[in-house]
Amino acid sequence: MAKPRELKRRIRSVQNTKKITKTMELVSTSKLKRAQDRVVGARPYAQALAEVIGQLYSPELAERFPLLRQPGKSARGAGVRRAALLLITSNRGLCGAFNANLIREARRRLEELEAQDAHTELHLVGKKGISYFKFTKRNVASQRVDIGDRPTLDHAAELAKPLMERFSNGDLDAVDVVFAKFNSAVSTPPTTLRVLPITPPAAKGGEGRRGAANYILKPSAEEILQQLLPLYVQNQFYRALVETAAAEHGARRTAMKNATDAGSDMLTILQRTFNRARQAQITQELAEIVGGAEALKG
């Protein structure tokens, strides 16, 4: 049986670790709350944009917008030849399998694209993804770690701009984003979203172009689409960033809760072992004293 002093030391160590994980859990909970508000707050805008684009969109117009160009219709024949993949991970660890899942999804997608003979470049956001792909020695087209857990619209614009430009010029046939979709605090599946070419959002209620025909449009449906399509793309990047940030806190909270619970279990067992060891020691000491006294009487 382990010595009581040894056990005492381990109990203290587990207690201290538990304090840390408990605090991290509380911090994540409050950050999650705020991040969640941002996800919800971003929803009406995305919805409104999608709705209006859906109403204005028509297949005839699609030909004229480079952002809507489908890969099959590119000048160099069918299929995706050059693609870009943007992977969003967190800067910090201690959030369970969160980053591992995202990286796995990205690798799956890369393989899929490469199986189609597409030359794929990789763009990374977040330290965890960067260190993984550095380890595998893969070429990375761009990387950044400055976004953190409070992404802004400017961050999204910076990410979206070069990719949109290159897509419009025909240097890229497709742009995918891998991020954690925030369904709820406990359900955040890694998701691949094809942001470019834009998949025109379907108009609500199937009214389609007829809905738009009743509007007085200024300057024109084309001009409005011209302005709104880039905003729509930007917004998809923004949502990917915000949802991943929220999902990170959700994942960290779950991981820290599990760690705290495991700590409590360990403490119970250690405490019990310690008590038993202490009792055994006392019993033995008593036996020795009694034995000694007996011997003296002798």
Partner: peptide, 25 residues
Amino acid sequence: VSVISAERAVFDGEAESVVAPAFDG
């Protein structure tokens, strides 16, 4: 009337008139 920005809904309510800056005035 509702005013929505990319980050959140800024205004939401009943109104009697709205003046907004369009692209040309």
